Computed example of a mutant assay.
Amino acid sequence: MFGSRWDSILVDNLATTTGVRVICVDRPGMGGSTPVPSFIRIAVWLETVPALLKALNVKHVSLASHSAGTIYALNTIYHLRDILDPQRPYLAMVAPYVHHSHSQAMLMKVVSKIPVSVMGAWAPLAKFVSTRITPTASWSGGIVSSTATLFQGQPGTSETGKLTFGEKYGVSEEIGKCIDKLHDKWMFAESNSAGNDEALLCIKKPGTEWGVCDDYEEYVLLLVEREKQRLSARDDSAKLKIDVFFAESDLMIGTGGQRYFVQCWKQDGVVDTIDFRSRVLPGTDHDTAVMDLGIGAMKTVFEHIRGPAQ
């Protein structure tokens, strides 16, 4: 269940100021993990996370998600709230996914018209595009890259922002270039069938389940009520902090999806119960908002989780 592309990140809050321990949780059906059909993906996720943390002897984490991982993250903080640190409960959502019925994003409206029978061919298509077409054409942030990212994952194939390859991966420049060159090859070396099921989940094909966050507006109100009860019942609880980082240009949700998502969190009662903040990351697209350490969100996320230096 571990892989190079993740739906959510669980970060061990027990880490010291010298760093954080990161648990990257990939989609079921990626690599050597067991395939999970779209209609039970959320349920299996909610069973898997506590079992994984127990096996690793990790009690509390912070949570981060990217794109479709939003669906998993929102279900996690609602159903598995106790895995967050009572003193510093934190969720970061980067380029959060919004259904096209609210975002009106043309890309996802087109994808939603694809017959279910054709979806089975999506993962091989994403592999072909990512390994044969995209590296040659360098369509960074384009429709092919963004579509592949949602359903399979498409890392950048060239230097991003102001980072060198060495800085991007935290190694020497020579090794960094090798990593970047081989990234796609090894990412697609094993199964990527999860892309098919994730596509069905994201566009809400009949039979798929988004769990408690099927409607974002209703979900926020449910979460607020639960957080109110928690704050009144437990003296050691702090307000849940949620940071949202939008890409400046995001073909998945567009500006309409951004507006809708923020409005969901501006409903009555939210500000008194949940510390919600959102920002747009200049110069980013759906991929670089999380993958680019220079202009993306992850440096800020990890600095918040680590806390102030002692």
Rank of each mutant, 00 (worst) to 15 (best):
S172T: 15
D82A: 12
T34S: 14
A95C: 13
C202N: 09
K113F: 10
L251G: 10
I83K: 02
C264F: 10
C264I: 09
G307W: 06
P115S: 08
H66G: 07
S8I: 15
E217D: 11
S62D: 10
L46D: 00
A148D: 06
I179A: 05
H66C: 00
T164S: 15
A247G: 01
D197R: 04
L91H: 07
H183L: 13
Q154C: 14
K127N: 08
Q310F: 14
M93G: 04
V244G: 02
V212D: 04
E190I: 09
E167C: 01
Y90K: 02
A247R: 04
W6D: 10
R277E: 15
D272H: 07
I295D: 08
P96K: 00
W139K: 05
L74Y: 08
D214I: 02
T255K: 12
P89I: 01
E47V: 04
K228E: 10
A15E: 07
R27F: 12
S278Y: 11
M1I: 12
L125Y: 12
L80Y: 03
R259A: 11
L182W: 13
G207C: 01
A95P: 07
V244E: 03
L231C: 01
G69A: 07
S117G: 15
L52V: 13
I295W: 09
D26Q: 11
V212H: 07
G69H: 05
K162V: 11
K239E: 03
T157G: 14
E225T: 09
A68D: 04
D85Y: 01
I114S: 03
V11I: 15
E190D: 15
L10F: 09
L125P: 00
K113D: 06
E218G: 13
I23P: 00
F151P: 01
R41W: 00
Y72M: 10
A64H: 02
A148Y: 01
P124K: 04
V280W: 00
G195N: 08
A126S: 15
T160A: 11
